[in-house]
Amino acid sequence: MSIRRFALAALTSALFAGTAVAKDYELLNVSYDPTRELYQEYNAEFIKFWQASHKDDKVVIQQSHGGSGKQGRAVIDGLRADVVTLALAGDIDEIAKLGKSLPENWQTRLPQSSTPYTSTIVFLVRKGNPKGIKDWGDLIKKDVSVITPNPKTSGGARWNFLAAWAYGLKAGGSEAKAKEYVEQLYKHVPILDTGARGSTITFVNNGQGDVLLAWENEAFLALKEDGGADKFDIIVPSLSILAEPPVAVVDKNAEKKGTTEIATEYLKHLYSPAGQEIAAKNFYRPRDEKVAAKYAAQFPKLDLVTIDKDFGGWKTAQPKFFNDGGVFDQIYQAQ
C-alpha cells in the first residue's frame, strides 16, 4: 500500500470512526462435487453471522464444484479462489507445492488437521439387500457387481480403494493379502466412472451393479431423493476409512483481494456449533462432540482407519497406490 493510499484509508476510517467501515466482499469457495448443498446452506448462515458484527458489509459467496483434482488444478492455473474445500489433503498439497499460493504446512493452521467435518465410505445396495451384502468380504462373492469410480480421476474413489485395502490388510494380515483382496474386488467392478457423481448415476439411474461404494453423505442423499428410500439400503461395513475433506485459505489470492480476515473467519465458523449442525444436517459427520452426540443415531459407529495413521498421509499413499505404476495400475496390468 502506498503512503498516499494509506493516508487516505486512515482519513476515511477516521471519518467513519465508531461505525466501522462498510466493505464489499466477494468470496469464491472452490469445492468438490458433493458439497453443493452443504455450502449453499452454510453460506447463508455465515453471511448472517458475519453481518451480526459487521452490520454494513455486503458479502457475496460464490461456489464452484467439480472433481477434486480438477478443481485443484484450476486453482493452480489461476482460478482466484479465496478458500478451497476439497475432497483430500493431497489436492491442497499440490496447490501449495505447484501453485505456491499457500504455505506447505497449511494443514496445521486449523483444528483437527483442517477438517471441520468428516465422512466415511459405506455401501449402497438395492432395497432388501438381495445379494446379502454385509461386509467387504461379501463384495468378492460370485455374481456381485460393484460400482466405484476410477481412483485415478476421483478423490472419493481413492478413499474407497484405501478402505478396501484396510479391510484386506486386517482380514489377510499382510500387504500381499491386501493386494490380493483389492485385485479380486476390482475384478467385480464392470464400470469405472470418472467421478463420484458419475458412479451414483450409473448405479441409481442406469441400474447397474449390486453395490455402490459411496461417500456416506452421497448415500444418504440418494436415499433422500424421491423414492430413494424405497429402492436402496445403506449397509455399514465393519471397517472403513475416516474420509477427511480439508479446508484452507488460499493466502495469495485472499491477500490480493483483501479477504484474508473474512476468509479465515469463514473457515473457522465451520467449527462453531451452528456450522457443525449444518454439516450434520447435510450428512457429514461433525467434529463437535455435542453436535455429534445429537446426531449419533444418524451415524452408526464403526472401526475407522485414518489416512495419516494407517497410510502415512497422502504424501505416501498417493505415489504408492495411485500414481502411474502404483498398486492400482499393477492390479490392472496383471489381468
Binding site: 472433481g67 483434482g69 480438477k70 485443484g72 488444478r73 493452480i76 499440490e94 505447484l98 476410477n150 485415478k152 480421476t153 470418472t194 495411485f322 500414481n323 502411474d324
Partner: peptide, 12 residues
C-alpha cells in the same frame, strides 16, 4: 483423452 485427464489429475 481419458488417459490425458488421468495424467492431469496426477498433476503430471
Amino acid at each position: 483423452p481419458l488417459l490425458i485427464m488421468v495424467k492431469l489429475d496426477q498433476y503430471d
